[in-house]
Write a protein that binds this DNA or RNA. Structure first.
Lengths: 223, 223
DNA sequence: AATCTCATTATTGTATACAAAAAACACTAA
DNA sequence: TTAGTGTTTTTTGTATACAATAATGAGATT
């Protein structure tokens, strides 16, 4: 583990377990904590300046979220991701994203239409800036607006959970400038269909968007 | 809480947190622990004969699973289920069950075909016996075989999680003898299509199966 | 009688202590 | 040298102790 990069943001007034949870989660998603790496309680407790109790509770949560794996009497390690895992996730995500898009067509509010337009613009602007963090944030924002427009809390939660698991690979995809033009176009297409309320075309556009991601991610793993 | 019915099954050799987790989970699913009921740590610890530590860890897991809700500095309570929640769950479940059925058509093994046949038979036999527990178990088994045949671990996990949340309502549906004939028929239809590998018809059959459940559950809540 | 204040209690949040199991290591004997 | 054995160390699993906060209730005052 990178000794320096893992530290807590104590600004928010949350129980320590939640702060630890967010910290570890972020560490795993950004790759500071690598797949297979052991998470030892005392070690983490010392590093984060808390006791083992909140660490343990955070690990229980990460376990259920699938980000860490417990080995009996040996503790936790960052979950390893196999090609099969990614493929499984994307298979499910395809239909859930498609569903979210369909529901968004039916239920999107006027305010959300406006948000969607601005999110799409922002994404295009971000690609020009070249700042990877900005681009990733703008991409997440765009998808969040569509998800929110589905007005289905369970769906939102499940898609977010799936997205989380493959975040690292998606990041690589988004980083690559060669994909930017296509991404902007795909976003525009999805946005248009959703705003028009054209369910059929919207689903197809969303599915194409995922399939393109899928191909890229799986080829990343092949290397 | 019903004082007597909540007790642990210590047979299995698992960490206490997992035993507690299963115990509380079961309690919530069967209705021994009712929505809105407060889960107080010391109380539960005394009742189950363990310390607060495993109780707390189990609660963290139940929280992420959605079965309990945390109220800051007040502790946990059994999640309340609204009509909207059920509707959200079923909306997602429709597409996931449909996906599972489609994948099962493609990937089911010969052994699993055999299991599916025996599960369908068993369900029919269980309805004759009239034993509600038996019927519910047979129903779960049938759906588990299809899910397993999808060969997608993530999908299996997600569908199980969704099913869990509406278990109580499904139980009511299954209890009602008036539904048995239709259920048997629907199962038979799904089974036939999956075994034949007819994806289109299988999905439609699965969707009808869910929609019928959906109507029943939502009308239960209306009362 | 009603309300406000203050003390008490109950309960969660966090830290630490202790127990038990597994892993690592060194030492002995063949 | 190598296999085996016993010991030490590390680490998890569980229990308990302490701290802080929110709920409760009693008593005083108006």
């Amino acid at each position: 583990m990178d000794e320096l990069k893992l530290q807590m943001n104590m600004d928010e007034y949350l129980p320590l377990r939640d702060v630890v949870f967010n910290t570890l989660r972020q560490g795993i998603l950004t790759g500071i904590l690598k797949p297979g790496e052991r998470l030892m309680e005392i070690h983490l407790a010392d590093k984060l300046g808390v006791s083992r109790t909140p660490i343990r509770e955070a690990i229980r949560m990460l376990e259920l979220e699938g980000l860490v794996t417990m080995i009996p009497r040996r503790g936790a390690e960052v979950s390893r991701i196999s090609r099969q895992d990614i493929s499984d996730v994307l298979e499910v995500r395809l239909v859930l994203d498609s569903l979210a898009t369909k529901l968004a067509c039916k239920r999107i509010t006027e305010d959300q239409k406006e948000e969607l337009r601005s999110a799409a613009e922002e994404f295009a602007r971000a690609t020009e800036s070249g700042d990877v963090t900005e681009i990733a944030k703008a991409d997440v924002r765009f998808h969040d607006v569509i998800l929110a427009a589905s007005h289905n809390k369970r769906l939102i939660q499940m898609v977010n959970n799936l997205a989380e698991r493959i975040y690292r690979y998606r990041l690589e995809y988004i980083k690559d400038a060669a994909n930017h033009a296509r991404l902007i176009e795909e976003h525009a297409k999805i946005m248009d269909c959703v705003i028009k309320g054209d369910e059929g075309s919207a689903c197809i556009a969303a599915e194409i968007h995922i399939v393109n991601q899928e191909n890229n991610m799986l080829s990343q793993v092949d290397e």
